[in-house]
Nucleic acid binder design. Structure first.
Length: 554
RNA sequence: GCGCCCGUAGCUCAACUGGACAGAGCAUCGGACUUCGGAUCCGAGGGUUGGGGGUUCGAAUCCCUCCGGGCGCGCCA
């Protein structure tokens, strides 16, 4: 639709120029066409005349009128009017919507995904939780955001690599191993002192018990600390992967810090930074020269112990990603890591890399609410709620939908009470119910001996009224919503759109006059069934992009 | 103190990235068809978009400033 309008507008500008009604400069103006939110303003609208007003030195409405007079409308467009301050509004012919509707019905749920990727390669790095404990609710937002972005890219014709990066070389790992060792000794009846920042969770004790089962008391003395670390990492990763599987989240590649350190890429980063005079030595440690990079302060790259901080491998990792030739590199992380990311990008730039392919999607924190009360989430305390527990409590569909039902910039308040409710005020069920209803209509149609012909092309859609064309218009706009969500990395637009589409359907469905199945009027019934098919494809397709089920019965 | 994000209806959040009258859900109040699923629908009240200035045809959106909240400012990640 937008393409059609842009084309005729461009032609109209040229004609108006030939008549001397517009200046030559007008041709270079970008033409923006959008679907107005209020359908009274037509099917498509352009602010072209408003945008040109300044350059042309004429009132917007006069320009709009000149353009309208120069328009030659093709058959698909029935009307072009000047409205409001100078908008050009267009109305499409019913036949246009009929054709689009048939396409949406025939293509199945994939009609919602425009093929805009062109096979370009995208890497999405997300979750990237270090194996120090079970996934938290906050990790859940990360996992669902990253996974859904990956699904969106894959569905729209990109080649996607889903990647999980974790730090297994740093101080935290030592602390983890030591925590396990302390619990292990305790299990053997030899109380030991837990390090100050040690991991206190019950899962540490379970890992320790496992070691006791397998090794008895053999690890009590002179054991390689690595044994404790490895046991912990293996056990915790197994649990993380299980939770991800439950959530419908998967990865293609796991990358770890230790490999980057062992094969010299971290050293290479240090050498390159040093070469450019970006490393200063102080207190026995190596620092990244912050001021030279426009950073607020210096940041440690190599500790005085000679071990790198997390920062240096992270730079090496991003270099690796850039070298792998992705056209788009997405980093998904929480707001607490933003300063770190800024530092990595600054370092990459200083080393001469083009960081344009890298785009960060930074989400704000998640709070849990139950009956209006905030649920405290502390790793140390017993009030700790794991992602696993959350999924068990409310189900995968609800978890995924709720995490996506906010712009990533916004704080997310997860209302457990609402999430548990299997009722209309729960948006997940509202959308799923629309799908189940539609499925039920098709079951009913079968009983009534009505079925859509395999080839939709021959179906007569002229019985559809204006209310039905409104629904069609909404359903057919879905691919543009998806395209926008991908371009701007804003998956939240999809659940919001789905809610609107489902709402419009529910309203339509509830009017007795709109009975889809009408044995007395098979022509009307078939036309409405085609509309129903398109709506069903849209809802199922949209939920599919989110990794949420579209049930036929509830 | 400095940096980033946020502030929209009583609550939780949208607003197509500068467009037309700022919209949904929850909560509150009042209603609905004897046929396709009432997990639905219709209606009502509720707003100076935190305050103030600016930019322009036009601002919730951009700029400045103040107020309030979150996160960060580790030889943790």
């Amino acid at each position: 639709m937008k393409e059609i309008i842009v084309t005729i507008l461009r032609a109209a500008i040229a004609r108006a120029q030939a008549q001397g009604k517009l200046s030559a400069a007008a041709a270079s103006a970008p033409i923006v066409v959008e679907a107005p939110k209020d359908s009274a303003h037509g099917d498509a609208a352009s602010n072209l005349a408003l945008a040109l007003a300044r350059g042309e030195g004429k009132p917007p409405r006069a320009i709009a009128t000149a353009i309208r007079d120069a328009l030659v409308l093709p058959a698909e467009v029935t009307e072009a009017t000047v409205a409001g301050p100078g908008f050009l509004n267009f109305r499409m012919a019913p036949a246009y919507w009929h054709q689009e509707l048939k396409r949406a019905a025939a293509q199945g749920r994939s009609y919602v995904s425009p093929q805009i990727g062109g096979g370009r390669r995208v890497q999405v790095e997300f979750l990237s939780a270090n194996p120090t404990g079970p996934l938290t609710v906050g990790h859940g937002r990360n996992a669902v955001l990253g996974d859904t972005l990956a699904r969106l890219f894959a569905a729209t014709g990109y080649r996607v690599t889903r990647e999980y990066y974790f730090n297994d070389g740093g101080r935290q790992m030592k602390l983890l191993g030591e925590s396990v060792r302390v619990r292990y000794l305790e299990e053997l009846g030899r109380p030991a002192a837990m390090p100050e920042d040690g991991y206190q969770g019950e899962y540490i004790r379970e890992i320790a018990r496992g070691l006791q089962t397998n090794h008895g008391a053999a690890l009590a003395e002179n054991a390689d600390p690595e044994i404790f670390v490895k046991a912990a990492v293996a056990a915790i990763f197994a649990e993380i992967k299980q939770t991800c599987e439950k959530l419908g989240v998967s990865f293609d590649v796991y990358t770890n810090e230790l490999d980057l350190m062992r094969d010299g890429r971290v050293d290479a980063v240090m050498a390159a930074l040093r070469e450019r005079g970006l490393v200063v030595e102080r207190d026995g440690a190596q620092w990244l020269a912050g001021e030279k990079l426009g950073l607020p302060k210096d940041q440690v790259l190599i500790r005085s112990t000679g071990e790198p901080t997390y920062r240096t491998p992270d730079i090496a990792y991003h270099i690796d990603k850039l070298k792998r030739g992705f056209e788009l590199i997405i980093d998904v992380f929480g707001a607490d890591h933003i300063a770190e990311h800024v530092g990595v990008i600054a370092a990459l730039k200083a080393l001469g890399y083009d960081t344009a392919p890298i785009r960060a999607i930074i989400y704000q924190f998640v709070t849990l609410t139950r009956a209006g009360e905030k649920v405290k989430m502390s790793t140390r305390k017993a009030t700790y709620v794991t992602l696993d527990e959350l999924i068990d409590e409310v189900g995968v569909d609800v978890v995924r939908f709720f995490f996506l039902f906010r712009k990533h910039d916004s704080h997310l308040d997860f209302d457990l009470e609402l999430a548990r409710r299997q009722a209309p005020e729960n948006p997940v069920f509202y959308v799923q119910y629309a799908h189940a209803r539609l499925a039920s209509v098709f079951r009913e149609a079968e009983r009534a001996g009505l079925a859509l012909p395999a080839d939709a092309a021959g179906i007569d859609l002229t019985p559809l009224g204006s209310e039905e064309l409104e629904l069609a218009r909404r359903a057919v706009a879905f691919p543009e919503v998806v395209a926008g969500a991908v371009a701007d990395l804003e998956p939240h637009r999809i659940p919001f759109y789905l809610l609107e589409l489902a709402g419009e359907f529910h309203r339509y469905y509830n009017k007795p006059a709109n009975r889809i199945i009408n044995p007395d009027d098979p022509r009307l019934s078939i036309a409405r069934l085609l509309l129903a098919r398109a709506l069903m494809n849209g809802i199922a397709g949209g939920l599919g992009l989110l990794g949420v089920n579209a049930p036929d019965r509830m």
